[in-house]
């Protein structure tokens, strides 16, 4: 799905000297996004350009709107009643909120992994990974089996589950379940993978495995990860956005945010003065 030319551009971005925000292909382009839940405004004029095939972390204290922002990228906020928004989000130049876009099709292009692992308990490991393809009407056994193995390998789960693919997905450990959910999302070959605090319920070793995965995943798609763990953002993201009280305070390379942020508020949060 990702155009070939982009690979070169991405290579160029790896050069530290480049001004990344201009050189990299923009995956998600957010303009003046405001969002309300009923009367409560959750996001204020957020504008951000998320580069393709990179991992971008969104950090900030609880309730700052980071998960809400993430959910506007696959229109998941529309599932909760009473949410409305203004502003624009473009995915590779395409307006996500134009009337021609069917949110169910969009969500196949923008995958999502949640805070709490949520494999379908009535399905086996195999069925969990392939459920998205099945919904799309893919019936070819060969394609399904290939995708099953490649996605489970990508999620670093294949060696652990290959001998019992027909056991229920909920029989796995917490970290394995979360990796199963990543495999399930990746089976749709999404252009963007959204991760909403994917490690907050996991122990350090399981967390480490997921963080290592992100390096692999961003070769396949753009990764956007919401986390309240600053060390995690430092470890596994190329770019970091800091949000506070529904506003985007600062967005830059992760090293810059963590070593020499432009805004005082960012520095206060990074150094642990609040939040």
């Amino acid at each position: 799905m990702v155009p070939k030319i982009m690979k070169d551009e991405v290579a160029a971005v790896n050069n530290e000297e480049e001004n990344v925000q201009e050189a990299a292909t923009v995956s998600l382009d957010v303009n003046d996004l405001c969002l309300w839940y009923g009367k409560h405004q959750a996001l204020y004029d957020v504008s951000i350009k998320i580069p393709a095939n990179k991992s971008t972390a969104i950090i900030g204290p609880s309730g700052c709107g980071k998960s809400t922002l993430l959910r506007t990228f696959n229109r998941m906020h529309e599932v909760s009643p009473g949410a409305r928004m203004s502003g624009k989000v473009h995915l590779f130049g395409e307006d996500l909120y134009s009337p021609e876009i069917d949110p169910t099709i969009l969500r196949r292009r923008v995958g999502m992994v949640f805070q709490k692992s949520n494999p379908f308990p009535t399905m086996t490991i195999r069925e969990n990974v392939l459920v998205g393809l099945r919904l799309n009407g893919v019936r070819d056994k060969k394609i399904l089996n290939e995708r099953l193995e490649s996605c489970l390998r990508m999620a670093a789960l294949w060696d652990e589950v290959k001998d019992h693919l027909d056991r229920p997905g909920t029989g796995l450990s917490g970290g394995q379940q979360q990796r199963l959910c990543i495999a399930r999302a990746m089976a749709m070959e999404p252009e963007v993978l959204l991760m909403d605090e994917p490690c907050s319920a996991l122990d350090p070793i399981a967390t480490m495995k997921i963080e290592e995965l992100i390096t692999t995943l961003k070769t396949k798609c753009t990764v956007v990860i919401v986390t309240h763990n600053m060390q995690q953002a430092g470890r596994c993201s190329d770019f970091t956005a800091f949000m506070y009280l529904g506003k985007l305070v600062e967005f830059d390379r992760t090293e810059k945010i963590f070593t020499n942020p432009d805004k005082q508020q960012t520095e206060d949060y990074i150094t642990g003065r609040f939040g």
């Binding site: 998941m76 599932v79 169910t104 995958g111 999502m112 949640f114 459920v131 998205g132 919904l135 399930r184």
Partner: peptide
Amino acid sequence: IQREAAYALGAT
């Protein structure tokens, strides 16, 4: 989260 899992896969 079960419903969200399905929505996120593009389920109607």
